[in-house]
Write a protein that binds this DNA or RNA. Sequence first.
DNA 1: GCCGTTTTCGGCCCGACTGTTTTCAGTCG
Length: 569
Amino acid sequence: MKNRELAQLLHEMSILLEVEGKDRFKPRAYARAARAVSSLGEDIESIAARGELTDIPGVGKSIAKKIEEYLRTGRIEKLEALREKIPVKVAELEAIPGVGPKTIKTLYESLGVTDLDSLEAAIREGRLKGLRGIGTKTIEQISEGIALVRAGMSRVLLSDALALAESLVEHIRSQVPVKRIDIAGSVRRRKETIGDIDILVCADDGEAVAGALMNSPETADVLVHGDTKTSVRLRGGTQVDLRLLAEESYGAGLQYFTGSKDHNVHLRSIAMRKGLRLNEYGLFDKDRMVAGREEQDIYSTLGLQFIPPELREDRGEIEAAQKNELPILISPNDIKGDLHVHTNQSDGANTLEEMVTAAEVLGHEYLCISDHSKSLTIAGGLDEGGLLRQMDRIDELNASGRWRVRILKGIEVDILPSGELDLDDSVLSQLDVVVASVHSHLKDDRATMTERVVTALGNRHVDILGHPTGRMLLRRPRIEIDLERVFEAARENQVIMELNSHPVRLDLNDANLRLAKEMGLLIAINTDSHRTQELENLRFGVAQARRGWLTAEDVINTRSVDDLLRMMS
DNA sequence: GCCGTTTTCGGCCCGACTGTTTTCAGTCG
C-alpha cells in the first residue's frame, strides 16, 4: 500500500505551499487530497490503473497527474522543487503543539530554522526574542513542545483512551451534578488509535465541572481554561478537551465535536445548499434555530438518516444517508460466540475449563478453542498428538453437561514460509474450525507473502484467515501483502476473513473490512484471547466492524452453532 | 487546486482560545 506514503507527501506539499505563501487555497486543496488518500479502502495503484483517480473527492486533474507521477517514479517533481526552495523538515516542526505553517514560515525566513535541532539552538541563543508575534510565553510553549515531540508523544490505543475517558466521566459525575455528559471525538467514532479525548458537558455549574477535570487524579497540566473550553494533559501525555454546552445547543455540539472534520465540512456544505447555517450551536435559518437540542434533529432537518458515529468519516455515509441506504450496523448483541481463543495448552494464561466458564458468563452460545501449532515453539504450540488429546478432552467436557456453551474444536495453525500448513491434513480434517495465520518470516516481500498466503488458503481445511495483515498498532507495520489478491483467493476457496478484536491488532482495519464486504467475503469477529478477561475485547472488534460498514449478515459468528458449522464444512 | 440541484468562475467551515496585538493573527479541532 503506497497510500500512506503518498498521503504524507501530499500533506507535506500543502504545508510547504503554505510556507511559500503564494496562494491561500492551493494548500487546502492538497491537504484535502492528502486526507482523502489516507482514508481510501483500496490501493491507490488499483484506482490509478482503472483511470479513476479524479473520482477521489478532492483530487482533480492536476493532483491526479502528480499521483501518477509518484506511482511511476516514486517522486513528485513539484515537491522536490519545493523542498529545494524551502528545506524545512515539516513533519518535525509541525508536531510541536502550537506551531503551524505560519510559525514555521516565520522561523525559517527570519532565523533559518529548518528542524528541531536548529529550532532548539535558536531558542538557546535567544534569537526568538523580538520576532513579530512571538513573545516569552510562546517561546516557553515551543520549548516544552520540543521536549514532548522528542519524548515521542503519540497516539494511544482506543482501548486505553476509552478507559481513561470513561473514568474521567465517572470522576466528573461524582464531583458535580451534570445534566448531560458524553464522550465525543474520535473515541466516540471508535477510531483504532486516539490523539486526544473530547468530553462534552451540560451543567448548571460549568466552572465546577472544569475544576473537577483540572483536579482529577489523572491530570498533570492545565493547558487551556476559558468559559466554554478547558484542556488538560493527563499523566500519560494524552490531552483532554472539555467543553461546556448549553442545553438547547447540546445536540449540535455533540454532532460538531464528534467529527470527523471531513464529515462536518461535508455536512455544512449540505446545510449551505439548503440556505441554512450549521455550527456547534445549532442549525440556523437566518437567526432562527431550526435544530440543535438533539443530535438526530440536525441530521433529520438536513434530510438525512441518523448516521452512527462510527461511519462519520466522509467516506460515502452522507450520500447513503440522503438515499436512506445506510446499513443496519452489527451490534454487540448480535455476536453468538468466539472462534479464536487460546488456553494454557499453548501460550494462554487460563485452562480450557476457565475459558469456557468465562464465555458462559458472557452469554456465548459457543467457543472455539484454537491454540497455536507446533512450529510456534515460543508459544508452546501443539503437535498432532497434543491436539488430538485436546480434542478428546473437549468431547468429554461437551458431554459432561457442565456448560450450556458448546465447545468447538479448533486450531490456529501456522502458515509456514512455503505456504503449507504446520499440521497434517489428517488431523485438520477432524476439527470444527481451522484458523490459519502467519507468525513467522514477517519480512517476506510482497510477492512472496501474497503467494504464501494464497497457497495456504487453497488448503481445503482452512476456514478462517487469522489477523490477515499482522499489524500491531503503534508497534509494528502490517506485512507486505496484496490484500485484493488474498480476498479473491478467499472468495474462490470460501475462506472467512478474521477481524481480530485485540485492541493492538484490530486486523482487518475499517477500510479493509469494507473492501472485503464489497468483494462478497464473510467476516469472523474473534478475540484471540490469551486470558479470560480478553474475551470482552469483542467490544472493540464490533466497533471496528461498524466502522467497516458491516451488518450482522456479514459476520459468521452471528449465526447459530448449527448454521455456523454447516457454512464451514 | 477543486468544485458546482444557484456556478466552468468565484468561491473555498467556523468559532474558541491564546498571546501579543491596541484590533488581530495563528492554531486547533
